[in-house]
Structure formats: C-alpha cells, structure tokens
Design a protein around this nucleic acid. Structure first.
Length: 480
RNA sequence: GGCGACGUAGCCAAGUGGUAAGGCAGGGCUCUGCAAAAGCCCCAUCCGGCAGUUCGAAUCUGCCCGUCGCCUCCA
C-alpha cells in the first residue's frame, strides 16, 4: 500500500499523512450550527469527510471521529425572538432534520457528537486559563480574546495582522480593545439563554471556543495535538484561525492539529450558496426529489477541495452513472442475496486506493471502477462492492430490481379506456392487465400483423407503460 | 485594496515535466418487423493568451485576459 497524501492547509503543501500515534487517527470536523436548515453545501462537506473516514478505515487505522454541534449561537437566539419559539427547540429540530438527511445519504455516524452546551464547564475552564495568561480580558459586554497577544495569528489563513486591522471594525455594542479581538463569552442580555460563570458573569460561549474546548476534551487532553482538523474552506478564517489562537497558547506541544483539511465550497447553478443569502434549496427537499446515491456520485466527479458548481446536468450525469453501476451489479450478482462487503486486499479496491492516495482523487477512482465493470467477471462482485464502499456507494436490495418506479394507480382504468372494446380486463390487477395486452400483441406479432402490434404498444404507451422486446421475450416498465 | 482558487472537447471534469482519464450530450455499428433497451466503436494534433526555461510543458517561470471565492455570519 502506498502513502496517503493529503493537502494540508497549515503548510500549504501536499503531505504524506502519518498519524501522530501509529495506528490511531484522531479527527475533529466542524459540524453544524443548526440555526437554519442544512443545504447541499453542508452535504458536500460531510460527504467528503465520510469518504476520508472510509478510506482511513480501509487502510487499517483505528479512528476517532468527532463532529461537533454548535447548539448555541446568535442566530438561533434571534430566530427564537422572531418566532416566539424556544431557542433550543429550534436548534433541536434543525439538527434532527440534518441527521435524517445524513442518514439518507449514507454518512456514517460520528464516534462523538459533542454539543457546545454540554461542555460549558470545559469552555469556562479554558477561558479562565486564557485570562490567567493574558490572552483574554473582560469588558462590559463579554470576555474577549486578545489577538495581539498571539504572535502566530493569521498563519493558517495566510493573512497578516496589519491588513486585517485595516478592514476590520467594531460593531455597535461591542466594547473590545481591538477590532480583531473576538468574543470568548458573551454576557446575557435580559431574556437570553445563559449559564452561570463566576466571577465573570452569566452568559453564553462565543463562537469558536466550543471547538477548542471540545477537541481538547475529547481528542487531545494532554495538549499535544491531534491528527486532522476539517471543515469547509469558509471556516479557515476566522473560525479555524481563532480556534488555533485559543488552543495553542495552552498546549504542551502545538500545533493544535497536524493536518488541516478543507473542503471546497459549492455553487448552485452557478451561484454562491449560503445561509445568509438564502439562495439554497434545503437539503431535505433535494433529498425528497433525488436519489441520495446519485447525489453522492455527483460529488465524486469534482476534486473535494475545488469550488464545485452543482447543476441539474451534473446530477443527470450521475444518474446515468448510477444506472450503469446497477446494471453491472445485476450482471455480476449470482442470485437474490446481497453479498456483504468483504475486505479485499488486491484487485480493484487496491487500484482505487492508489488513486485515493493522491489527495483523495475520487474522480479518477470512479473512472477506474467504470473501466472495471466493462468486462468484470461474475466472480468479481466482492471486489466491486468493496470499491463502491470506498467511494461511499453501497448497493442495496433495490439494485437488484430493474425498475422500481411505482405503477400509476389508474392503469387498469386507462387500459380499459384504450382497449376495453377488444380485451376484457374484468377483475384483472394492473400487472395482469398489462400482461393481457402483451399476450394479445404477441399473437399479432406471431401473425406478422405489425399494424395491430404497434397499435397495442401505442395504447400501452398512452397508459404510461413502455415495453421492449428482446430474445428472452417482452418486458415492460413504467415510462418516465 | 489584501489573500486565494480556477480557466482542459458542445457541457461537467481527471491529469501538475514525457506526449490528453472518465461521465453527459452527439455520431456509427450490432441486435430488431418497427421501436426501445443493451453491448461495441468513434468523438480535443491539443489544454485562456503571449513570452520564457527544458531534449521534452496542459503540467515549471513571468506577464496579460477572464471567472469565482474569502477578507462580516457561513460546510
């Protein structure tokens, strides 16, 4: 097995991945702030880290994958004020919806899913330490982080303090020393959710500190760093920059994370997508209309770190690819039982792995799979399934069924309307009625009465039934 | 203004020094009464432009043009 090379934002180079502790990989990925509905851009990001998990697992590492939930933030509080709902109900509902979508997409459950509000004491401990060392100071609206105290500030995102100072400004109501400083703790205004924090004052954590506190608590209690910190590219600044600023002064051995891996953002039909612009379709709605496996395949064709433009065309292409995979699967499948994924060392999975070694080149890996199925023998099913698993596509029972489109309910009535004069459909089920027509057409064909044959086929077509003739006989399916 | 990404066939896209993956669309063939499906085959003398480095460049360097993102909440 070759080396896995990953692009590391921290060093801005492609590096060979080696775990800090041989055999064990600790990953922290910034999860959702569920104060609005999740969209396809979120899906792309978490789908990528799901792929990375699969591949690291395939390579034999033991993983600890932590994906946090920032369940307290200004937006959910504002939304609660607008709607009159309880802020926590809002957050819980959005998060439940997100989880359901992830399940539909086949994203594996995180090992740990820490909620910010469950780690208040750890957050407060960290703020105390930062204050003791002079990295934090208290003013009337909250506790802020003193950016000027941390000399490495800006290193991850490749920015320098002077330029940042030039563009930054202090919002009304903020009382910080410097425009770049950010809140570690916000004192509660009347009616806002709050947690006690002696001696400073009741309030809630600022955005950023929860990730520093929870990654420390769950992945790196000794302060010696963990392996991979991930998230969308939009988190590099300021979120990840701030996490580093909070964590590293308290660590025995920085850096906070050895690798920083960022997923490219997603455009939707050529336009930027974001919560604040509101120009996105909620993920649940998209999943209601589309096959989750087709959505996964769509993402495989573009490099994970690139900006990707999601379009109806790209999704249509993925559907065609998915059908191709299903046909090959049926061709290779010995019977009606779905064979579980095996751990195959050689063959296709190894070739796919070699391609994933190159900074998770899923596009090339998919191409390899498609080349494989062109002349794959029936016995290659385990290889095929393993390779598909690596790409996050898991065959299920429905792959064995050629057409799962449900029959229109009124098929028999419509057939009676078309052909009731010549064929009696009394008591027939939809399937039986269709078979009756096909039998009638078979007789016509046997008699070389092509006019009658075509008339029957056209009648079926008007009822939404498409038929095709093959050496094995005539089969039908529900027309698209 | 600062930082960064990208520009490869009609469309999407891989490839980052050794002579252009793959998918969609399109075309042809096989099969077929017809149709559909399926299978097979074809489809970029060339990688935004111009210079340069090199035996050799889509791949490296410089300049130019274009698209987009981040710099404020964001996966």
């Amino acid at each position: 097995m070759g080396d896995l090379k990953l692009y590391n934002t921290r060093t801005r180079t492609l590096e060979t991945f080696r775990p800090l502790t041989p055999g064990d990989v600790r990953i922290y990925v910034c999860g959702l702030t569920p104060s609005a509905q999740a969209h396809l851009g979120h899906a792309r990001s978490f789908l990528f880290f799901d792929l990375l998990r699969r591949y690291l697992t395939y390579r034999g590492y033991r993983l600890t994958y932590v994906q946090n939930v920032t369940d307290i933030d200004d937006r959910s509080i504002n939304r609660a004020r607008e709607t009159g709902e309880d802020w926590y109900t809002i957050v819980s509902d959005y998060y439940a919806e997100f989880k359901a979508s992830m399940r539909k997409l086949g994203v594996m459950e995180p090992d740990e899913e820490p909620y910010a509000t469950k780690f208040i004491s750890q957050i407060q401990a960290m703020i105390r330490e930062l204050a003791d060392l002079g990295y934090a100071y208290v003013v009337e609206d909250g506790i802020y982080y003193r950016v000027s105290k941390f000399s490495n500030y800006g290193k991850l995102s490749n920015r320098n303090i002077e330029e940042l100072e030039a563009g930054a400004r202090i919002e009304v109501g903020e009382h910080k020393e410097d425009p770049l400083d950010f809140a570690l703790w916000k004192f509660a205004k009347p009616g806002e959710p709050k947690w006690p924090f002696d001696p400073y004052g009741d309030g809630r954590p600022g955005w950023h500190i929860e990730c520093s506190a929870m990654s420390h608590a769950l992945l790196d209690p000794k302060g010696e760093g963990f392996d991979i910190h991930g998230g969308g590219a939009d988190l590099i600044f300021p979120h990840h920059e701030n996490e580093i600023a909070q964590s590293e002064p308290l660590m025995a051995h920085p850096p906070m994370s050895n690798f920083w891996v960022h997923g490219g953002l997603l455009n939707f039909e050529g336009r930027k997508m974001s919560k604040s612009l509101g120009n996105f379709e909620p993920l649940v709605d998209l999943l209601a209309r589309h096959d989750p496996q087709a959505i996964r395949l769509t993402f495989l064709t573009t490099g994970y770190s690139k900006v990707m433009n999601f379009t109806d065309d790209s999704l249509a292409g993925a559907y065609a690819t998915l059908d191709k995979l299903k046909r090959a699967y049926r061709r290779m499948h010995p019977g009606g039982v779905v064979v579980p994924v095996h751990n195959i060392a050689g063959g296709l999975p190894a070739r796919v792995a070699d391609l994933l070694d190159e900074d998770m080149n899923t596009a090339a890996a998919l191409a390899e799979v498609l080349a494989f199925i062109k002349d794959a023998p029936a016995g290659a099913l385990a290889e095929f399934e393993t390779a598909l698993w690596l790409l996050g596509i898991e065959p299920n029972e429905s792959w064995l069924v050629e057409d799962v489109t449900p029959l229109p309910e009124d098929v028999v009535d419509r057939l009676r309307g078309e052909l009731g004069g010549e064929i009696s459909f009394n008591g027939a089920t939809a399937e039986e009625a269709i078979d009756l027509v096909i039998q009638r057409r078979a007789s016509a064909r046997a008699a070389k009465d092509w006019a009658a044959s075509d008339r029957l086929r056209d009648a079926l077509a008007r009822c939404g039934i498409a038929i095709k003739d093959s050496k094995e006989g005539t089969t039908w399916s529900v027309a698209e």
